[in-house]
Design a protein around this nucleic acid. Structure first.
Lengths: 337, 337
DNA sequence: TTGTATGCGTTATCAT
DNA sequence: ATGATAACGCATACAA
């Protein structure tokens, strides 16, 4: 039942080279023999052995997708888009959900490297460490294959970055709030990585541009594991109870905004009349909340499309831009005026 | 820089067989030579070539994950759990998001088969066709590797089913509604596959057990592409406008319940006082809605864990149960009395 | 246009 | 305990 190329060649009365040629539709084969061989192939249901082919060509046309957490709606969306795109171009995707710990991420990269994937994409700026030396695992990987960062910035030979200008986008969102009269914008975030810092910088920038001072008490950090909807709600209730005043909430992720809406409900604050809320990612969560969440669209679809284009280009030996930046956009729904 | 086993053997002054032995830590190698070889291996950073190993062993320790849509929160959750579990056991996962069309699913299975994955898991009963012949692609795949169905039932040699008793679970949810006094439960669903039919059967069963007749007008089907939150809301508004009465909404997926809550808001119905709502999957959406959604937990975590156990057992040649059924459970939140 | 022969880097089977 | 060597199944340079 497990045919190989020799079996086919024998049955078709040709050499294995000829079989190989029709398989890789080389032009140097007569129409009659092609037909003859194809008939045998289809008759037997023969499929070439991927391992043997991989060994010979030193590639199995596979891309490694490294994802901190595939159950995050934003990353899940990216995953779906990347996988579909890559497969359509003839590449399969090896998935590795590493979590956010450095050691696990390193191990994930190592594993993909050992499997000789043709390239890999690191999903999210989570992958970039502040300490330059902590990124050695990326530099190392980039020596043996192209590495593409989704929403991360990292300058290194053979690594390519495709991202949204988070600072600009967050500045726009902050500015919208400020310009609609809000003066005390509570900022909720749960990451201090590159992207996280850029967002915060955008928040500050919008204030600075308008000559408004930022009250540092309005900056509220949640650790990844303490950021459930209810925990956010309770924290805000506590903050408000302690006298902290705010007339808007801006968050680095949509899910944190959901917590803010829970707070508003619990505290009896009308949204958006008494409290404006803006999220980030424009995820599928936005139309689900009540009222529906205004959010920053960071162009995930465009980013994913461009990642695939870039990867294929690089693998094809073309010259590709090392950094591509998309511009975010505020999508207004019901939590803003 | 790209060492192979010959390079190592030469530098260590042993044969490639010995290198291979230390690599696969065979007991038949003296401690001194092992040390000697290990030293060379670590000194050179040599990593065995995965393709060659695959060719020799006829396996690359890979599981194929077929997923209709990784951006569905339920499937994304399953994906994360399966991948983490499998990788921990030494298996990498090849992802294939096929969408819901039969042809695409077949192609996905074919691709994974051609890549000689060690086994595959089909995520969701979407994969099972009503017409027996439509499932030939699964039977075919099962001839060359174990196939595991997540939440699907299909009787065939070498295919294993791990699922939740949807009928029982939906009957429990329906019963809870009925017993709390609801009499006209609108049922929203968007799939007629095996799982979908079982759920509907549960809805009917609970009525029958209580001697209550089902008004067929209360059964409301949404096609996959017409089931956005807003479309569901608008449909319910229209239904109610046409005089259809209902005092509860029960849905086959959480996202449809979100639409029902939108309807309640738009129609000015108080939840749960005037309208009870129950979803299905107990997904991460549930605590996000307002009020928070009561939903059926279909034990996804347990299912995923069991899938991995089963797969490893089968690959290890052990006898494994062909069908494992978990019992769902109603998780009460704020949309029910 | 077609066939022959070799290489790809392992693992496994024999000897020794 | 260790070494020599034959698979594994394909692609491809070269020969015809």
């Amino acid at each position: 039942m497990a045919m190989n190329i020799y079996d086919i060649s024998r049955r078709a009365g040709v050499s294995i080279a000829t079989v190989s040629r029709v398989l890789n539709n080389s032009p140097h084969v007569s129409e009659v023999t092609r037909k003859k061989v194809m008939a045998v192939i289809e008759g037997t249901g023969y499929v070439p052995n991927a391992f043997a082919r991989g060994l010979g060509l030193n590639t199995m046309k596979t891309i490694g997708l490294l994802c901190p957490d595939a159950s995050d709606p934003y990353l899940a969306q990216a995953l779906t888009s990347l996988e579909r795109n890559f497969r359509q171009k003839g590449y399969d995707c090896l998935l590795s959900c590493t979590g956010r710990e450095l050691a696990a991420r390193q191990q994930g990269v190592e594993l993909l490297k050992s499997r000789h994937v043709d390239g890999m994409v690191l999903m999210g700026s989570t992958f970039i460490e502040d300490a330059s030396q902590g990124n050695d695992y990326i530099r190392d990987a980039a020596r043996s294959m192209p590495v593409i960062l989704l929403n991360g910035a990292f300058s290194c030979e053979n690594v390519f970055c495709v991202l949204c200008d988070d600072q600009q986008a967050m500045a726009e969102a902050t500015g919208a709030l400020l310009d609609s009269g809000c003066r005390r914008i509570l900022y909720l975030y749960h990451s201090n990585n590159y992207s996280g810092r850029k967002k915060l910088a955008g928040y500050r920038e919008a204030h600075r541009e308008r000559g408004i001072e930022v009250d540092e008490k309005l900056l509220c950090f949640f650790s990844q594991d303490k950021s459930s909807v209810h925990q956010v709600r309770d924290t805000l209730l506590e903050l408000a109870g302690n006298g902290l005043e705010f007339d808007a909430v801006l968050t680095s992720e949509d899910i944190l905004s959901v917590g803010a809406l829970k707070y508003a409900r619990a505290a009896g604050k009308k949204v958006p009349e008494e409290l404006c809320v803006i999220g980030y990612n424009n995820s599928s969560l936005c139309p689900c909340t009540e009222p529906e969440l205004t959010s920053v669209d960071n162009k995930l679809q465009a980013i994913c499309d461009h990642i695939v284009t870039t990867m294929l280009g690089v693998l094809d030996g073309k010259e590709m831009p090392q950094k591509t930046v998309f511009t975010g956009e505020l999508v207004r729904r019901e939590t803003t005026m």
